[in-house]
Amino acid sequence: MNFEFEQAAYAKGYQAVCGIDEVGRGPLIGPVCAAAVILNPEDEIKGLNDSKKLTEKKREILFDIIMERALAVGIGFASSEEIDEINILQATFLAMKRACESLPQKADFALVDGNKFPSQLGIQGEAIVKGDGKSPSIAAASIIAKVSRDRLMVELDREYPQYGFAAHKGYPTAAHYRALDEFGEIEGYRKTFLRKYYAKRKSTE
């Protein structure tokens, strides 16, 4: 992975190119989290990759390195309530907008993981399919977003250990469904995500 996409944007005259990625579109509970990262092309960070392809330990190590060496890092969330209100895709774009806006150094071009570029960002950019495996900036953003959201779920686990949030991070696993059946909903569950599950459970009763 090299700075091909970033360098192409800088060659066009842009001054600050950020990579943006999100995590948490699939879980039943908790926010979706996005991160925006501006890297220094002259300061390569070894080991950057799609956060899903890295171990938790490696992500934690790279998180600290990125926070220390990136030119700027921004993190944004969209809550479960916002997900229920505007749908997960729009909530994802909202989290990306918040991440971009929270950058201490304003970006003027964004490389976004996926096949849709969110116009809400208010800056120029492009969407790159599987960008977290092609662009160091997007890969860095995927790591920041993943670790940030995972840490929130670990905090929730301390408050509600019976749900196993530290293990499954809110994703719809068999263990998570068992806990949900036994203990019921708590604040933070995505109502729209649970409707299909409840309907399916009712049909099998």
Score class of each variant (00 low, 15 high):
130 K>N: 08
161 P>K: 00
25 R>V: 01
177 Y>V: 05
89 L>G: 01
62 L>R: 12
15 Q>A: 12
141 A>P: 09
197 Y>I: 14
17 V>Q: 06
43 D>P: 04
80 S>L: 01
141 A>V: 05
82 E>P: 07
161 P>C: 06
205 E>R: 14
108 D>Y: 07
78 A>M: 12
116 K>L: 14
202 K>Q: 15
47 G>F: 13
54 L>Q: 10
194 L>K: 00
130 K>Y: 06
33 C>A: 15
7 Q>W: 05
172 P>Q: 00
79 S>L: 07
130 K>H: 11
63 F>C: 02
15 Q>V: 07
42 E>F: 10
95 A>Q: 11
6 E>K: 12
13 G>S: 14
63 F>N: 12
192 T>C: 08
46 K>T: 10
143 I>A: 03
166 A>V: 02
28 L>A: 02
119 S>W: 08
175 A>E: 00
202 K>N: 15
105 Q>N: 06
59 R>I: 10
72 A>C: 13
136 P>I: 08
45 I>M: 11
22 E>C: 04
125 G>M: 14
23 V>S: 04
167 A>R: 00
79 S>E: 05
3 F>C: 07
82 E>N: 06
84 D>M: 02
136 P>C: 08
91 A>M: 02
191 K>A: 13
9 A>R: 12
145 A>P: 03
23 V>D: 06
182 E>P: 01
131 G>T: 12
37 V>F: 05
69 R>H: 13
